[in-house]
């Protein structure tokens, strides 16, 4: 499923990287420890996290993630949004908790491969 469709169906807010929403979401990973995501996230996964600081963008670039979803209505730091735009990383937000959001994604058929 394309990221743009996920955003539409779950009514998500796009903070940055709006022109990179054609990517296919191949699964997801939820976590707030960067090394844990480096170890277990996979290419094309959507990363669900509460971290909003700029260092999350490098993780998404290096792991070739489909995008980052900030949960609980959290907003990115301005430098984070700027970096996401510069590197072409979709940065998205939801009011849902990580648990609820992951459940919705899973329910839509997006499962970890």
């Amino acid at each position: 499923m394309k990221l743009a469709e996920v955003i539409k169906r779950l009514d998500l807010k796009v903070f940055a990287g709006a022109k990179d929403l054609t990517r296919t979401v191949g699964g997801g990973y939820a976590g707030d420890l960067l090394s844990d995501v480096m170890a277990h996230g996979q290419k094309d996964h959507l990363w669900v996290t509460v971290q909003v600081h700029p260092n999350i963008i490098a993780v998404a670039v290096l792991k070739e993630l489909a995008g980052i979803v900030l949960v609980n209505g959290r907003e990115p730091a301005p430098e984070t949004a700027e970096k996401a735009k510069e590197k072409g990383v979709p940065l998205i937000g939801t009011r849902l908790s990580a648990y609820e959001f992951a459940g919705r994604l899973y329910g839509m058929g997006i499962k970890r491969e």
């Binding site: 707030d32 420890l33 960067l34 090394s35 844990d36 480096m38 170890a39 600081h53 260092n55």
Partner: peptide, 9 residues
Amino acid sequence: ELGFGAGMG
């Protein structure tokens, strides 16, 4: 707090 220091590096 920033999510570093998982002891996995």
